[in-house]
C-alpha cells in the first residue's frame, strides 16, 4: 500500500541576491518515514526547513506539508508540525514546566490536558528531577532534550529537527537518536531531520538526502545510494562515509 506523502517539494528554490542557496529541490517524504537530510555547513538545510515551515518565502517552486502551502496557510501547517530550531532557546527565567505550559497554551491545549502531558514528557526526556529549575541553569544537553519535549507537546504529525544532536556528548547523542527512532516507530510521526554527521543519519534514517551547495545530489534508502553512488553490488560492505565523500568530491 502506498503511504501518504506528507512533505512535498517541487522545484523549490531560494535565492539571496545572486546567491542560490537552495536550487530546484524536488523531494517527497512519506508518512511515518525518518528522513535524514545530510549536508556540509552552508548547504542550505536550514533554509529548506524554513521554507517548509513558512518561516521564509521560497523564490520559486512549490511546497506542501500535509497538502497545505506553508506560505498561504501558515496556521494549518503550524498546527500539525513540530519544529526544533538549530539553536533552540527558552525563556531562561521560567522553569521547564512553565516553558512547556506556554507552548501548550499557544497550541490551545487545555491546562488539564497539558499538565498530564508535561509530566509524561519530562519523564521521557529525563528532566523530571530538574523540572523546577529555571531553564537558564540548564546544560546544553538538557536544553536540547527540553526542546524535544516542547516539540512533542502538541503531538505533531510531522516533526522537523534541525541538527538535534549538535553539541551533545556521545551518550546524549545516542539517547537522542533512540528517542527520534521511537517517535517514528511508536507514534507514526514523520521525521525530517538535518545533520552533517554521517553515522547518525545512517543509523536511524529510512531514507537519506544529500545536499551539497544547495543541490540535492542524491536521495533514497542507504543501500540504493550505495549501489548508485559507488557501483557496489548488494551485500557488499559500504559506509555512508564513502558515499558521502564521493558525492562531496563531485559537488
Amino acid at each position: 500500500m502506498e503511504k501518504e506523502i506528507v512533505i512535498h517539494m517541487e522545484g523549490l528554490t531560494k535565492r539571496y541576491g545572486a546567491q542560490t542557496v537552495v536550487d530546484r529541490l524536488s523531494l517527497d517524504v512519506a508518512e511515518g518515514e525518518i528522513f535524514g537530510f545530510l549536508g556540509p555547513n552552508g548547504a542550505g538545510k536550514t533554509t529548506t526547513m524554513l521554507m517548509l515551515l513558512g518561516l521564509t518565502e521560497p523564490t520559486a517552486g512549490t511546497v506542501r506539508v500535509c497538502g497545505f502551502d506553508p506560505a498561504r496557510d501558515p496556521l494549518k501547517v503550524k498546527e500539525i508540525i513540530g519544529y526544533l530550531p538549530e539553536n533552540v532557546g527558552f525563556y531562561e527565567d521560567m522553569d521547564a514546566r512553565q516553558n512547556l505550559r506556554y507552548i501548550a497554551r499557544l497550541n490551545r491545549i487545555p491546562d488539564q490536558v497539558s499538565t498530564v502531558r508535561i509530566d509524561r514528557l519530562l519523564d521521557e526526556v529525563d528532566l523530571a528531577k530538574e523540572a523546577h529549575k529555571p531553564v537558564g541553569s540548564y546544560s546544553k544537553g538538557m536544553k536540547q532534550r527540553l526542546g524535544i519535549a516542547e516539540v512533542l507537546i502538541k503531538e505533531p504529525r510531522v516533526v522537523f529537527l534541525d541538527e538535534p544532536t549538535i553539541g551533545l556528548d556521545p551518550d546524549g547523542t545516542n539517547k537522542m537518536l533512540d528517542m527520534i527512532c521511537a517517535l517514528s516507530r511508536e507514534r507514526q510521526m514523520t521525521i525530517f531531520f538535518s545533520s552533517h554527521l554521517l553515522d547518525q543519519v545512517q543509523r536511524i534514517s529510512d531514507r537519506i538526502g544529500i545536499m551539497i551547495k544547495g543541490k540535492l545530489v542524491a536521495a533514497g534508502p542507504l543501500a540504493e545510494l550505495a549501489q548508485r553512488g559507488l557501483g557496489l553490488e548488494e551485500g557488499e560492505a559500504y559506509t555512508l562515509d564513502q558515499i558521502y565523500m564521493k558525492y562531496f568530491k563531485e559537488g
Binding site: L75, Y83, G89, L106, N107, R108
Partner: peptide, 14 residues
C-alpha cells in the same frame, strides 16, 4: 536574541 522567536512563530498563531 534569546532564540525563542523562531519557536514562537512556528506555533499556530498569527
Amino acid at each position: 536574541t534569546g532564540r525563542t522567536l523562531s519557536k514562537l512563530v512556528s506555533q499556530p498563531i498569527y
